[in-house]
């Protein structure tokens, strides 16, 4: 088995290009304003962190960006295309993929089956080609299987390939979600708390994986995480969200030492 190969190189070419641009996003549930005039831009090839207290609206922001919620106001652009209000699956096709904060159940699927679903625009996902282009479907499926195994090896969970996903630990589920997201070769990956509830060793390991994917393959990440230490070594820029508003934006160091951040996190309880 050769080492994990570079199969994606779009991001490098687009370096310094804005891959995600959010302008004036606003969302409220009933009377509760959850995100309020949030604007941000993410450069291709970067790692951006987002922190903020529980209930700050971080996940809600991701949900609006990825099409799961319709924003009340504002716009979302992916690679220069306006995707505001589009269906989640359409936004994936524009190159933006997100993971979920809470692990998603996947009954009865094996790890490699779950991986294969991540691959985009598969010919075999339409009924007709299964009958008229069988050989091509076979080729495609074989290539996807190989890529799935490569990714599982990269994340060091290839020994679980044929295990049911229900037998995975919480940490392994997080790795699977990350590996599956990469099957889609997205231009930008939104990770919602990728290391929440994970032991410190694996946290460091995941940080290493993300760093390698970013450095070696140019993947762009936008990561929500409470673990500021985790983001410290990883992100070039951290956005602080508080009560639905961007409180501050800067390097991890400036953010960490900012008084308002300390206050927001400790709250005034």
């Amino acid at each position: 088995m050769s080492s994990f190969e570079l199969t994606y190189d779009g991001a490098n070419l687009q370096k310094e290009n804005t891959v995600l641009e959010v302008a004036g996003l606003k969302k409220s549930f009933g009377g509760l304003v959850v995100t309020d005039d949030v604007s941000l831009a993410i450069e291709s090839g970067s790692i951006t962190g987002m922190i903020g207290p529980n209930g700050a609206g971080k996940s809600t922001l991701f949900n609006q960006i990825s099409g799961f919620y319709d924003p009340d106001d504002g716009t979302v652009e992916v690679n220069g295309t306006d995707v505001t209000g589009k269906q989640p699956n359409k936004i994936v096709q524009e190159g933006l993929l997100r993971t979920f904060q809470t692990p998603r159940r996947l009954e009865k699927m094996t790890v490699r089956e779950a991986m294969l679903v991540g691959a985009q625009s598969q010919l075999g996902e339409s009924i007709l080609p299964l009958w008229i282009s069988g050989a091509e479907v076979t080729r495609e499926e074989r290539a996807n299987l190989e890529r799935a195994m490569e990714l599982l090896e990269f994340f060091e969970i290839d020994h679980l390939a044929t295990e049911p996903t229900t037998s995975l630990s919480g940490g392994q589920m997080k790795l699977l979600a990350l590996a599956r997201a990469l099957m889609a070769e997205p231009d930008i990956l939104l990770l919602d708390e990728p290391v929440a509830g994970i032991n410190p060793t694996l946290v460091n390991q995941i940080a290493g994986f993300i760093e390698e994917l970013n450095q070696e393959q140019g993947y762009t990440f936008f990561i929500i995480e409470h673990d500021i230490e985790f983001l410290m070594g990883l992100a070039e820029e951290v956005i602080v969200l508080n009560q639905g508003r961007v409180l501050l934006e800067g390097t991890p160091e400036t953010v960490q030492s900012d008084e308002r951040v300390i206050n927001a996190y400790l709250g005034d309880m």
């Binding site: 699956n89 993929l97 998603r104 996947l106 009865k108 679903v117 889609a184």
Partner: peptide
């Protein structure tokens, strides 16, 4: 199958 298990997950995977 993934739609049966979790429709949102299916959508999030395009």
């Amino acid at each position: 199958q993934i739609i049966k298990a979790d429709e949102d997950l299916a959508e999030s995977l395009g």
